[in-house]
Each structure stands twice: as C-alpha cells, then as structure tokens.
C-alpha cells in the first residue's frame, strides 16, 4: 500500500490543490445560503461532482423541487456518460471496485486516469483505485473546510463560482497541447456557442450534446484522420 501511495500521490498533487480550493469555494457558497457545515460534508461524500454541486447550491436555495433537482443534475452531468464510454474497457475486470470507480469518475479523475500509467510492480486496478480514492478524499477535505470557514466568517461570495470556469479553461489548455485533441475541441466550442445562441441558457446542453453526436457521426472519416495523426 505504501509503495502504491508513493507512486500515486505525486501524480494527484494538481488535483489535491484544485479540489481543496474548489471544494472550499463550494462549502463557502453553501454556507452563505444558511446550510450548516455538515451539509457540505455530506454532499461532498455522496454527490462528489464539482459543477454538479455548485448547481445544487442554487437549486437548494431556490426551494424544494425534487423533480427539477433530479432533471437539472442529469443534464449538467450528462457529459459523464461519455467518460463511462471511454472507461468501459479499463474497468472491465475490476470486480466490486468497479462500482466505486464509476461513482468516483469526476472530470479530474477521468483526465488523470486517461493520462497516468501504472509503474511496474503496481497492479493497474490498485493504481487507478488509489487515484480515485485520494481525489475523493481531497474533495471531501475541501468541502468540509469551506463549510466551516463559510459558517464562521461572513464572506461576500459573489463571483466565487468562477472557480468552475477557471478549472475548465485550465483543462482545455492542457488538452490543447496535443495536436490531435484540437479538432474535437474546436468542434465542441463552435457547436456549444451556436447552441447557446439558438436554444438559450437552459436547453443548450442537451441540444449541444445531440449536435455533437450528429457532427461526429457525419464527419467521422475526416475527424478520425485528424485525431489519429
């Protein structure tokens, strides 16, 4: 275990810093709506979704609407469907651990599991499981700290949700470094801007996801050529 931790921990440091900071921003925002710190902890443990939890704060403070809460969360997190598709092969032989790996498949853990490779001597399953577990722990620590700080100090939280925008900009730039990622990235940018203008802020995520599947389907040949370069 120690051996695995020594190999995995350095790889997760960017997620550690990002999750503690982002989790804190979430906890502070939730506390500013009058929720006790324990709620931030519970949400961090059981929901475990960055953008999803930020959206959840808005829904929680808007009042009791179970169906709306359920549907909006499905839409905001619909991208995870595609992460699952990318991980079908990887998690095939993970046994019971597979269910935790699926639960813990956040944006950052997904990105890390795509890029990190286990060193010799550590089983693949143990390596990726440790990444997922550490990331989850970092997130819980951040949410807890934020809940406590937010309840103790009066903080003007206006604009704090920009932390999500900043996070995705950083992920975008990181992916942009590899030439083969650029065509899909640009298609996604163009399609989402057009869909936002045409369908408005509430419907565009669903419209954009449908549009992306259609575009990637219709232009599969040239896109596959540019991706495999």
């Amino acid at each position: 275990m120690k051996h695995t931790l020594r190999a995995v921990f350095p790889l997760t440091i960017p997620v550690l810093t990002g999750y503690v900071f982002m989790g804190m921003a979430f906890g502070i925002l939730l506390a500013s709506k009058g929720f006790a710190p324990l709620w931030a902890v519970v949400m961090g443990v059981f929901i475990y979704a960055g953008s999803g939890q930020f959206v959840a704060v808005g829904l929680m403070s808007a009042g009791f609407d179970p169906l709306g809460a359920f549907l909006v969360t499905l839409m905001v997190n619909a991208r995870h469907l595609f992460y699952g598709i990318s991980m079908l092969e990887r998690f095939k032989d993970y046994g019971k651990a597979k269910w935790y790996m699926i639960f813990a498949l956040t944006d950052e853990t997904f990105a890390l599991c795509l890029s990190a490779k286990p060193p010799t001597g550590i089983s693949e399953k143990r390596f990726y499981f440790t990444i997922s577990l550490l990331d989850h722990i970092y997130w819980i620590i951040g949410c807890t700290l934020g809940g406590i700080i937010g309840s103790a100090l009066p903080i003007n939280t206006a604009g704090i949700d920009f932390v999500m925008t900043a996070l995705f900009v950083v992920i975008f730039l990181d992916q942009w470094r590899l030439k083969q990622n650029r065509t899909p990235a640009l298609i996604g940018l163009g399609a989402s801007i057009i869909c936002r203008i045409v369908f408005g802020p509430d419907l565009f995520i669903l419209a954009c996801m449908a549009a992306l599947v259609i575009i990637f389907g219709v232009f599969r040949k040239p896109i596959e050529r540019s991706v495999s370069q």
């Binding site: 598709i85 999500m164 995705f168 975008f172 992916q175 399609a191 989402s192």
Partner: peptide, 27 residues
C-alpha cells in the same frame, strides 16, 4: 463495444471540455 461508441469515447471528452466552458458562461 460498438466501434462508433468507442470512437465517440475518444473524441467527445475534448469537445465536452469546450462545452463546459460555454456552460459556465451561459448566463
């Protein structure tokens, strides 16, 4: 897994990152 689904799994994550930036800025 169907080949088309595998292909989507390779290209969509990068398109989704762009979409999430636009999502954050939607309002």
């Amino acid at each position: 897994t169907p080949k088309f689904i595998g292909y989507l799994g390779r290209v969509l994550p990068f398109a989704i990152t762009s979409m999430l930036i636009v999502y954050c800025l939607k309002n």
